[in-house]
Design a protein around this nucleic acid. Structure first.
Lengths: 258, 258
DNA sequence: CCGCTGCAGTGGTTGGACCACTTGACCGCT
DNA sequence: AGCGGTCAAGTGGTCCAACCACTGCAGCGG
């Protein structure tokens, strides 16, 4: 039984993970130089070769920069930043981003939309109407509405982006607000907004479509904030550098229409 | 002349490129086993250590699969448990989407950019300039440039979108074109484009920033297409079994501005 | 015929050696 | 004192020669 049980990961991978964790955890500050390869090898109890392989993988991952004859440095801004350990952007950030991106998408779609697209969009309106009471179904129809508009551009990348943005609708603030977000009045407003967007698309009017989409998402953000203000006692600073502070208003300006 | 000429690329990178080219060129068929590390080392006239480092980088890139005690195999199409199941959007779709989205982001960033952001952006220009010859480093700097602009909006969702779009830069067409995409002239053009964008941002001019970004990405798409089209006077004549299916072109119109 | 064993080949890992490069201290000259 | 060149230490880059662990298969023995 002297078998090497579950040790599937190759050494260099384990070392790389270890070093990467130290970096992420802040043990090695951004821009600082980490110990020499020989030193790392000694500390970790492995050969320098293995350390080098790990460093190479980290270099490819963009977490580290190797300067010959000088040292290995923590990259100031790892391009391959991890997002799995994160709640994702806050609601206001997300809505501001959507306002900007989906606004443009709506404008583009207005020029390319087909009859079949419009029919599919109107179907989502019906679905939302019929989903009366079923929040999950209404949510699904809502999502489909936005994704289908992106699909109307005939650009898979855009559709993917919209879908991904919707997927990010998570985190504490989202779940906290969701329950209060399904009032009859809001449902009606959303339907009206969606219908207006469809109308603009049907008219083939890019400017109107962009405006309608932005108006819609701006309204959502507004309603969102209204439901957040009263019980502000809750620690809105759940995470994120700018969830409820003025910086978000600035991101509002991001999608700023002018 | 004890000086080291212009041969700054680390050995393992050159080896990796060499092997990758052999794979792309079909010398090693998909699924087949390539020569043993010792054999490759002997044939390439380098040490086995360097070959191993190259193999590791190829493994990370997903081009190759290492089976302990068995051999190194050319990875087949499926990248394993990838969520997308397909190659993702084609280059033209992706560039069209980026043109639209990053154009708006640049405009927004122009109104919010700080001195530190500009400094960071200029640092990426230097990095690209210094990365002379090292395509990977240049690529990293390029990515960082675009992501940092998104970060200048102080909206994490936007930064995430840009990063995700870059991440999707995969698939057959991408890898096939990548090798021909690093000419000195194109490098200069990219640098000029980037510099122009930074200037517009520094001037706080949203309209100019949007235009500069769109111009940049449009140029990339144009160069991309030029290298895919037959003729055009340049070299090219990319061999390979009839795989030039420009089905991705469809979406070019989406970002069709003006 | 089947199953086990041993072997050959493969990747995995190691330690040590030497090289080229970067940096900064050092020393001598101006 | 200031300047310039030299040099040594430290670092990553590469190479080498082993040895280990695993896989697959041929060959042996049942």
């Amino acid at each position: 039984m002297p078998l090497t049980m579950v040790e599937p990961l190759r050494l260099y991978r384990r070392i790389a993970d270890q070093i990467a964790e130290l970096i992420d955890r802040g043990e090695f500050r951004a821009g600082s130089r980490l110990p020499a390869e020989r030193e790392l090898a000694r500390e970790l109890g492995v050969s320098r070769t293995s350390v080098r392989e790990a460093i190479i993988s980290l270099e490819i991952a963009g977490k580290v920069e190797v300067r010959v004859g000088n040292g290995i440095f923590v990259r100031t801004r790892p391009a391959g930043a991890r997002r799995d350990a994160d709640d994702g952007p806050g609601p206001f950030e997300l809505l501001a981003a959507r306002r900007m991106i989906e606004g443009e998408i709506a404008a583009a779609a207005a020029k390319l939309v087909k009859r079949s697209d419009l029919a599919a969009l109107r179907a989502t309106l019906d679905a939302m109407r019929d989903a009366d009471g079923d929040a999950a179904r209404r949510d699904l129809a809502d999502r489909e509405f936005h994704v289908r508009i992106a699909e109307a551009t005939r650009n898979g990348a855009l559709a993917h982006v919209v879908d991904a943005l919707w997927e990010q609708r998570r985190g504490e603030l989202w779940t906290r607000i969701e329950g209060h977000f399904h009032t009859p009045e809001l449902r009606l407003r959303t339907l009206e907004d969606h219908a207006a967007i469809v109308d603009a698309l049907a008219a083939g009017d890019p400017v109107a479509a962009r405006a309608a989409m932005r108006r819609h998402l701006a309204r959502v953000a507004r309603e969102f904030q209204r439901r957040l203000e009263p019980g502000a006692g809750a620690h809105g600073a759940a995470r994120g550098p700018a969830d409820a502070d003025p910086a978000d208003r600035k991101s509002g300006a991001v999608a700023g229409d002018e």
